[in-house]
Simulated assay, not measured.
Amino acid sequence: MPRDIALLGAYIPAMVPLSIAGAALTWAIDRLLGALGLYRVVWHPALFRASLLVIVCGALGLAVYR
C-alpha cells in the first residue's frame, strides 16, 4: 500500500483509512466484549477501550506496512 492515497485530488496518508477501519473494528470488538460482560472485571473501561483502539490500529498499520 502506498504511503499516500489520492482522494478527490487531495493526498491523504494511508493511515487515515486504516485508522477509520481500526475504529470500526474496535467498536465491533467493544460491543462483543460488553455483551460478554468483560467490563465488569476491567479496572478502567475507558482506558481499556483507548488501549484497544491503539492496539487494533497499530496491528492494521503493521499488517499493511510490513
Rank of each mutant, 00 (worst) to 15 (best):
1 M>G: 12
1 M>H: 08
1 M>T: 08
2 P>Y: 00
2 P>C: 02
3 R>I: 05
4 D>S: 11
6 A>L: 15
7 L>G: 01
8 L>D: 15
8 L>K: 15
9 G>S: 02
9 G>A: 02
9 G>W: 04
10 A>N: 13
11 Y>W: 14
11 Y>E: 13
11 Y>K: 14
11 Y>T: 11
13 P>L: 06
13 P>A: 12
14 A>H: 06
14 A>Y: 04
14 A>V: 10
16 V>R: 08
16 V>A: 10
16 V>I: 14
16 V>N: 09
16 V>F: 12
17 P>D: 05
17 P>L: 05
17 P>M: 03
17 P>A: 04
17 P>I: 01
18 L>D: 00
19 S>K: 04
19 S>M: 12
20 I>H: 08
21 A>I: 15
21 A>G: 07
22 G>W: 01
23 A>K: 11
23 A>F: 13
23 A>H: 08
24 A>V: 15
24 A>E: 14
25 L>I: 14
25 L>P: 02
25 L>R: 09
25 L>K: 05
25 L>V: 15
26 T>N: 07
26 T>R: 04
26 T>M: 10
26 T>V: 11
27 W>N: 11
30 D>I: 01
30 D>W: 05
30 D>A: 07
31 R>S: 06
31 R>A: 13
31 R>T: 10
32 L>N: 10
32 L>K: 13
32 L>M: 14
32 L>D: 11
34 G>H: 01
35 A>Y: 09
36 L>R: 13
37 G>L: 01
38 L>H: 04
39 Y>K: 03
40 R>D: 13
40 R>F: 06
41 V>I: 14
41 V>Q: 12
41 V>F: 13
42 V>M: 03
42 V>D: 00
42 V>I: 15
43 W>C: 15
44 H>T: 14
44 H>Q: 15
44 H>F: 12
44 H>M: 11
45 P>I: 00
45 P>M: 01
45 P>L: 00
47 L>M: 13
48 F>I: 00
48 F>V: 04
49 R>G: 00
49 R>I: 01
50 A>S: 06
50 A>T: 10
50 A>W: 05
51 S>A: 11
52 L>P: 00
52 L>N: 05
53 L>M: 09
54 V>G: 04
55 I>E: 06
55 I>T: 12
55 I>F: 13
57 C>P: 02
58 G>S: 04
58 G>Y: 05
59 A>Y: 08
59 A>N: 04
60 L>K: 03
60 L>D: 02
60 L>R: 00
61 G>V: 07
62 L>Y: 07
63 A>Y: 09
63 A>W: 14
63 A>S: 11
64 V>Q: 08
65 Y>F: 11
66 R>E: 08
66 R>G: 13
